[in-house]
Structure formats: C-alpha cells, structure tokens
Design a protein around this nucleic acid. Sequence first.
DNA 1: GCGCCCATGTAACTAGTTACATGATTCA
DNA 2: TGAATCATGTAACTAGTTACATGGGCGC
Lengths: 198, 198
Amino acid sequence: MATTNKTRYAILGMLVMEPMSGYDIKKHIERNLSYFWNENYGHLYPILKRLHADGWVTKQAEENEGKPTRYVYSITELGRRMLADWLTLPVERLPVRNEMLFKLFFGDMVSVESNRQRIADDLTFADQRQKQLEKLEEELRAELDRHKDDVEFRNNGIFRFMTVRQARYAAQAHVQWCRECLDILDGLEDVGDEKEEA
Amino acid sequence: MATTNKTRYAILGMLVMEPMSGYDIKKHIERNLSYFWNENYGHLYPILKRLHADGWVTKQAEENEGKPTRYVYSITELGRRMLADWLTLPVERLPVRNEMLFKLFFGDMVSVESNRQRIADDLTFADQRQKQLEKLEEELRAELDRHKDDVEFRNNGIFRFMTVRQARYAAQAHVQWCRECLDILDGLEDVGDEKEEA
DNA sequence: GCGCCCATGTAACTAGTTACATGATTCA
DNA sequence: TGAATCATGTAACTAGTTACATGGGCGC
C-alpha cells in the first residue's frame, strides 16, 4: 500500500496532456509543476521503461540523424485507467521532516546571529516565491476570464488555479512567520552569551 | 554535500538533552518533535551504531534481567561539535513533492465529488492539528511566563515556541485554503459530466 | 487471555540522487 | 570558443521503509 511509486503517475499525468519523450516529460514538469513537483532523469528513464513493459504506455521511435533516436511515449487506455484510479485514492500522509524547524528547535546551541541569518534567508526566498506565484495566479485568472464560456477549459483551469493558490497561501504564511521570528530574535539578542558580537 | 544523513543529527539532538537508549530516542522524538520530525527503528539503530563507531557517541550497557540489555548512549565532545557545525549550515532545499497538489492538478480526470472529499478530509485534519498546536502554544507560553527570570530557560524555550508557531501558521493557512477550495468546487458542481450524481 | 509497552536488532526491499558517458546543433 | 539545449541512458550509491524475530512484564 505504501509502495506507490509516484513517478509512475507523474509520467502518466504528463502523457495525458500529449504524447512526448522522456526528456519532454522532465521539461514539462519543470515548466508547469515545479512549484509542487519534480523528477530527475536517473529515476524517470527506468520507470518509463517499466511503464512500457507493463503496457501503461506505448513507445514510438523517431529517428533524427546526428541526434540520439527520440522515443515518443503515449498513454494507453490501461495507463489512463490506472492513473484515474490512483487519483481517487487518498493522499498518502508522508512522515514529516522539516529540517528548518529541526535546526531552529536547537537554536540555542548556536549564535543568535546564525538563527537570524537563516530566517532572513528564508524570508527572502519565500517573499520572492510569493511574488512569482502572485503573478502566475493573475495569469491564470486572466486566462480563465478569457475562456469563461468554454466549460471544459474552465473545469480544467480551475484546478490549476487552486494549486497555485495553495502554494501562495503557504508562502504568505511563511513570510509572516519569518517576520515574527525576526522580531522575537531582536528582543533576544541582548542576552548574548554566544560567539559573535565582536 | 547533499549526503547529509539527518538521522545522525536527530539522534545527536536528543542526546544533547540527556543520555538515552535507541528506544528512548524514538519515543522522545515522537513526543516532542512529531509535528515536524520523525524517525523509525529500522534506520535509527544502524545509524546509532555508526555514530558509536565514529566516536560521536559513547555506549553503556545496562543489564536488566528478563529484558534485553538496555544500551544508554551519551553524546561526546566531538558529537556535540559536529551537531553544532551542522546546525549552522544552511537548510538543504529538498525537491518538493506535494501529492495532494499533484492530484488536484489533475482534478478534472475524476469526479468533482472525489475532489471535494479529498479536500474536506484535509480540512478536518488541518483543523484538528491547528487546534492541537494552539493548545501546545498556550502551554509553552505559560511555561515561558513562569520562568521569565530564568534567562537560559527562556532562551531555549523561545526556539521551541517559534517552531510551534510555524506549524500553526502553516495549518491555519491550509485551513483557509481548503475552505476556499470547497467554495470553488460548489460553484463547479452543476457542470457535472462525471460518474456520481446518483 | 489479549494486547500494549519495553527493548533490541536484522534483512530485504524501494525510491530517489549523483555522477558518468556520448555527441550534434545553435547561439552569443 | 564555450555554454546551453536536445536526447538518450546506466551504475553506484544513500536514505529510508516494512516486515520479521524475540520475549518478559503489566494491566484490563
């Protein structure tokens, strides 16, 4: 049950959009899902091979002189069914492991400055991300508006919209928390029995 | 550089608090860090062995008749230094993989009801978690108040406080997002060309 | 009597990462 | 001239999970 191999479904998901090569799959994921998903070649290619062996996808060679042969994969009916089945399964709750919180938990073993630096970096990162997502959200919103009569388009776009919103909510909350922490650390500094302070 | 083996540091972190057995380490993590960290025996015991071989911890046998010998581990000076060094290192940004968002992204491949159910479950979970964390936060706050003159205690407690806050902010944001999604899905329902609806 | 807690660990496995290997084309 | 993009993959590795094995004590 815990042996889900999500890479399988990530591949299938891409192939639902259109047939493509392993290379394309990776690029598509990078371009469209990177804020919540990713894959790497070393895992992707072997899994693609297995999907083919299992009949979840078909493979078609495309010769290109000078370049390696390009193999274009398409999802089969079986593959589509397997994906749809998996999509209805409840999300597997993975054991949490938040390295940032772990390090912060032991914050009193290092200098206040070290803690502040970490959180400041995090704030910068989350803030940037938040802005990117804001932009993406606006784009999607505009696109939805343009297609307000195309039911199928809307029905698809609305889900993408929701995923972006989630990431934005998370980024926003993180920004707020970072700011609060920096304030707390400011009040803590004067105690300073650690390294720095020179 | 990416070969960090965080279990090593999780173990060391527990041993900084007090010397204990592998079993105790697991239990302590469960009781104190479970909202952002976890370990399992199958990994913990072998790593503990390696830490011992590397001289980061020492081991002391405690015979108990009827029970397996209890081995109590203590952190060494070297171990303490290795932990402190790691704590100052920037947090490794792991590749994101959010199964929930992935499934939602392909939401139009399954029924609206299936999507709603998933988000409703998530809302229930996040809401409960949020309440637990709220309680924990109040407890920590009270404890900090009681020890307001003990600088060392405060300095340690404040970091724990910050970790709980982070988890709470995240849970809160998630609750909000779930509610928003349920609203969106309500507006979507009438299009229904999927299974259910019987 | 049943099941949970204490307490140790190993073996077999899966998932995922990184580095390696190859090589043409295009653009700055 | 050098880097990026297209395009395939394999090999060696690490981290982490699950299932197994053992067995007394304690409370309901």
